[in-house]
Design a protein around this nucleic acid. Structure first.
Lengths: 337, 337
DNA sequence: TTGAAAGCGGTACCAG
DNA sequence: CTGGTACCGCTTTCAA
């Protein structure tokens, strides 16, 4: 824990020169710089965080609020937390994790103490308590996800509507006239905003294209396997020839298991497309076309926006949509009959 | 973002009085205190974090290093992260999350910049790179989990050996002479330290008690269902009459599914005990005796130790074991024949 | 019971 | 290209 004075002495320069050599905000003679760098290395110096926060204008810390509710899907949430952390580190930022049930308390605390430069909000609910709070504090706040009322907020998200449209179009273009959507667990349609957004767009696009759409959730967490099997079975009996799956890893597994048990192969008997999956679909037992939800994409953008909001040209307070992409792996074919 | 000077002016006192009124480190006259508190409220004041870190001796931040590897079991890790955060908040501490692949870099950075008061280490591997680093920095470090070489380290963990002994004793006391252990996924036996510890103790205790022990892993992550079914089947065919399960939620589900398919009921045909489960076993389809691994217990203790290491009586650099507890739900009975 | 003032360790302005 | 120094906002002696 050496300090800047010791570095300056060791290098035989003033502390301001050390500061400038490190920040690069002023030119420093090459060999002066070398001496300083050597001293820094020898002493294992890194600038005191508190002093920096106080004197400079930046804390180099972002808060990340993520309720981590028990009913949330852990792997998905972890990917987002991880992606955010990695993105932040790339810009020399650390992540302070706020998980308090009363997320608002944490947010106001870090905001009013100036502990963080910006706040990133994960797991955004339709009627999120963090929304009004974000409007009341002066620490820039970026939402990764979209609340119902997003007026005045900076939000980032995959364009779920466009993803649904893309999925429907792929299936209808291949000739399917009756398409099914295996959705998220029931609870997700209340606690989150994107599942209904995707489902609505799915149904609307199907209607536009003159196809029939059947949507089912994947039940509740503990009985999702059974509910999913039933949904798949009923859809197939109902004449559905193509499935879009908007769900976690395990639900995909169950869908394929059910198809296999019925002796149906993909894509010859049934077409399948995975929509907004945030896990690694390449590890599934069947090669499946996918419109992925890439946590890195959302989180990278969110971090960029957070950084930008610290400049004199803050980002527009609007929804920043990430266009969906399609990875083709051959799970879509024309319907059998 | 008012500062202490504004509060002092508003209350008509000096800044030192404000400071003392807030910290309580010096008696303040009742009505002086009231005026200060009013000013604090009116101005929405909370002390600047950077200034506090610089002037005081505490940052009120703990770092939490958690690799968040892709092959790690997300729900389990999330419980630990959450439990740590909650425990820390109870003592007015925030958590800075370090997930870098090169976990060491993050640790040295926060240590040498004085960003955090202590470091909490999660997901500890047998030969963890954070072990030598912890020895080289002067920021107190607490391991939640145990590396192979723990000399000089403060570690916290469930007493897995005692848990195994307790499980074996329960089963043997009930009359079982041949007991099986359905273990963690293969990878856990390389990447972690506790699965082999538990297994060794299980086998050793069985031998001591004159019982036969059969241990199997739950295969690799993607094929764990099949591997688990096979393990259960083979054990039963092999004369095992009681199963100890040391694995995640899904593996438990598979075990019960396999037993049900064979028409075996718990505990009449087979006894089962869950060992070191960190999820909610009450939600399982069968009421099962459990020796739980309680993340809150480990994390609370770790936070206590972290706090204590900031005092002049730091905790002993040793393994702080948490004694196992048994919850009886009626899944153990004497063997059938 | 209260106040004045010396740091804590940087940043960045003002000089040279 | 480099040095001196006034802050940043708080904690904590030292005095009164």
């Amino acid at each position: 824990m050496a300090n800047i004075t010791e570095v300056a002495e060791a290098a035989g320069v003033s502390i301001s020169t050390v500061s400038y050599a490190l920040s690069g905000k002023r030119p420093v003679a090459p060999d002066t710089r070398r001496r300083i760098e050597a001293a820094v290395r020898d002493l294992g110096y890194s600038p005191n965080a508190g002093a920096r926060m106080l004197a400079g204008r930046r804390t180099q810390i972002f808060a990340l609020t993520e309720p981590l509710r028990a009913d949330s899907h852990a792997p998905t949430h972890m990917s987002f937390v991880l992606a955010t952390t990695v993105a932040a580190r790339r810009h020399d930022y650390d992540i302070l994790l706020l998980t308090d049930e009363q997320a608002s308390a944490g947010m106001s605390r870090v905001a009013s103490s100036g502990l963080v430069d910006a706040i990133l909000v994960l797991d955004v609910g339709p009627d999120d308590e963090r929304v009004p709070l974000a409007r009341s504090i002066d620490t820039p706040t970026i939402f990764i996800g979209v609340p119902d009322d997003r007026a005045g907020l900076v939000c980032v998200d995959l364009d779920f509507e466009a993803a649904a449209v893309l999925a429907v179009d792929r299936l209808v273009d291949a000739g399917h006239r009756s398409v099914g959507l295996i959705g998220q667990p029931d609870v997700a349609y209340e606690k989150s905003n994107f599942p209904p957004r995707l489902r609505r767009a799915f149904e609307a696009r199907a209607a536009e294209r003159g196809a029939r759409a059947v949507a089912r959730t994947s039940g509740d967490r503990s009985t999702s396997a059974a509910a999913t099997r039933r949904a798949v079975a009923e859809m197939l009996d109902d004449g559905v020839t193509a499935l879009a799956v908007h769900a976690a890893d395990d639900v995909h597994q169950v869908v394929f298991a059910e198809l296999a048990e019925r002796g149906l192969s993909v894509p010859d008997d049934v077409s399948v497309i995975s929509v907004a999956a945030s896990f690694d679909t390449a590890a599934l037992p069947v090669e499946v076309d996918v419109i992925p939800l890439i946590p890195e994409a959302s989180c990278d953008l969110a971090v960029e926006l957070a950084l930008q909001s610290l400049t004199d040209e803050p980002p527009e307070a609007t929804l920043h949509l990430i266009p969906p992409t399609l990875i083709v792996r051959g799970s879509i074919a024309p319907p059998r009959r």
